[in-house]
Every structure is written in C-alpha cells, then in structure tokens.
Write a protein that binds this DNA or RNA. Structure first.
Lengths: 120, 120
DNA sequence: TAAGGTAGTTACAAAAAAGAAACTAATTAA
DNA sequence: TTAATTAGTTTCTTTTTTGTAACTACCTTA
C-alpha cells in the first residue's frame, strides 16, 4: 500500500494563482506584446504590426483589448486625425517583467541543454 | 511624424525564449501538475487523479507524456502488477519552480488588487 | 481623383485543445 | 467467479483559439 504523499500544498486545494497569472499571459501573442512593451515603453498599433509582422490586425486588437481589460496595459487614445493610440505597460504589467525575464533566462538555458536532442 | 521607438529588444528579432518556456508550461493542466510535483516529490498516476479530480485520464496521460518528452519530469515504471508508475520533477523541471513561485505571488497580489472590479 | 496612412471591425473558416465515455490487461482479494 | 486495483488507450464530440480576407472612416499627399 503506497504512502499518501498528497498532504500539504502551498495553495488552497491543489490550485493556485499560477493559473490566473498563466492565463493572463498565455496565448500565441500576449507574452511577445508585453515583452516588447517592457522594452519600448510606448508602442503604437501599427508599430506593433511592424515589430510583430506575423500577427494579424484582428489578433493584435483582440490581444491588446484583453490585456487592457485585465489591467496589464494602458491604452491612450489621442483624438486626432490620423488616429494615434499609444500602448504601454500598466503598474501591474510592469510587475510582470521580472517573471518574463526569468522565463527568458530559463528558456535560453533550456535550449542550450536540449538543442542537441530537440528541435524548435 | 512619430519617432521610431522600435530599435533594440533584448532578444533576437522581437521574439525570445519566453515563448518556449511559456509553451512548455501552458495549457489547462501542466502548471498544476508541475506545481504539485514541486510540493510532493513523487506522485503516482492515480494520486494525480485524486489531487486533481477534474482532470480526465486522457488529459492526464497526455500532459504527463508531453512534460516527459520536454524533459521537465521523470517517469519511473516499476515492472510489477498492479502497475506502479512514479512521476517526479527532472533537474530542468526543478529549475522552473522559482518561476512558478513568482507567478503564484504575482497572481495573489493581482487578485488582491483587482478583486474589487473583476471576478474569477 | 486616386492612393496611402491611421486604427481598427466583421464574417467566416481552419486548426488546436479539451472533454466524454467506453475499453484494455494483469493480478489479487472477497 | 466477480469485483477491485493499477495505469493507461481509443474514438468521437465539443469548445476554444487562431487565421483569412475584405471592409470601415477620416485626412493628407501626389
């Protein structure tokens, strides 16, 4: 009869806020968007399209709106023609950057260790 | 004419290993699986099913295999009847734990700041 | 007068992820 | 001999995510 090792976990039940955090930055584009905002301070809509050429307008709008709704980025609209909209990290968004940096480091190290056996 | 702020980003092009890291832990179950392994050392297949009751057998196998293939967890099979299979974090997987911890902390703080306005 | 730049929206289609339910094999215990 | 336990597999369906392509409005420049 196996010992029960499922005693204590450091979050309520077995779930935790990792899932929330992960959800906010998951998907094909959100992390790239946040990361670029972390490095550029302010990025406009079409600047994003130049920085991330593969993203479609639809996905870009969708992801930006979602990030805004979640309070990770700010959207500042200048009421002028031609339109000008500036995106930037919110305070909460800025607090995410150390995590993204760690993920970047971990990923680089992982690729170094595994590039012999796996392809990306 | 707007200034071009898209000069330097701290990874090749605009993409970076964040995407790789994120891919490895994304999905509905992987982070929970890793987090629990970080807290329990060893977990058997059916133990996982008790810890995470909502997961189906199919998803559990699928995610465990994927994590194993990516080198984040170890799968140790004891050739006996009834079968016994022990899952644990690999060295690379262990290195992920500080990131998950930070994500947990960030998420908790985020929920504190935003629970007034948003529901989860 | 037509093209180009701004920041989008809309409808539809394809692909990927997740879930439901039934099935497997070997052994032991009742 | 029937049920329970282990660790899964398989097929099919639903849901979610992502992509394609065309369209909008307003103004400036050629």
């Amino acid at each position: 009869m196996p010992k029960d090792r499922t005693n204590k976990v450091s979050c309520s039940n077995y779930r935790c806020e990792i899932e929330i955090t992960l959800e906010l930055i998951s998907g094909k584009w959100k992390a790239i968007i946040l990361w670029n905002l972390g490095n550029h301070e302010i990025i406009r809509f079409n600047e994003f399209r130049r920085i991330i050429p593969e993203i479609t307008q639809k996905m870009l709008t969708q992801q930006l709106r979602s990030l805004e709704e979640d309070g990770l980025i700010n959207r500042k609209v200048y009421n002028q023609i031609p339109p000008m909209v500036e995106y930037s990290l919110s305070e909460e968004g800025k607090k995410l950057m150390p995590i993204l940096e760690q993920m970047d480091k971990w990923g680089k190290n992982y690729v170094d260790n595994y590039k012999k056996t796996k392809q990306y």
